[in-house]
Amino acid sequence: MDIDFNAAYPIYEQVIDEIKKEIVRGELSAGDKLPSQRKLARKIDVNPNTVQRAYREMEQRGLVETKRGKGTFIKDDDQVMVEIKKEMAATAVSNFIDEMISLGFEKENILSKVETNLKRRDDNE
């Protein structure tokens, strides 16, 4: 895990985002153990308190669970995976739309661009 931190956004949230991405990409799966807080802090070069806060938040959001003396694990729950994917998809779509708007496209135009692109992909298959 190597994070390019954006200093204008809470760093613990960026740690959480990175772990979510690893889950979606399949590098981490349900039931997997997360690295110890200390280890992860060293690896990504952040303050151990920041990793502690990220783990605490993830636990509150139901993403991970901490087993006493054993460590922190990705929750073994399909619903969690579905939620993460939904959330990341929403972010990706929203980023895309923001960018298109900043390029000067109108709503209808954005939609037709998406449709054209999807159609081209279908044709190529």
Partner: peptide, 15 residues
């Protein structure tokens, strides 16, 4: 708190 300030102001500490 640095992260709370970032969240609240949408800016880095440097900014």
């Amino acid at each position: 708190n640095a992260d709370d300030l970032r969240a609240e102001k949408g800016k880095s500490i440097r900014e």
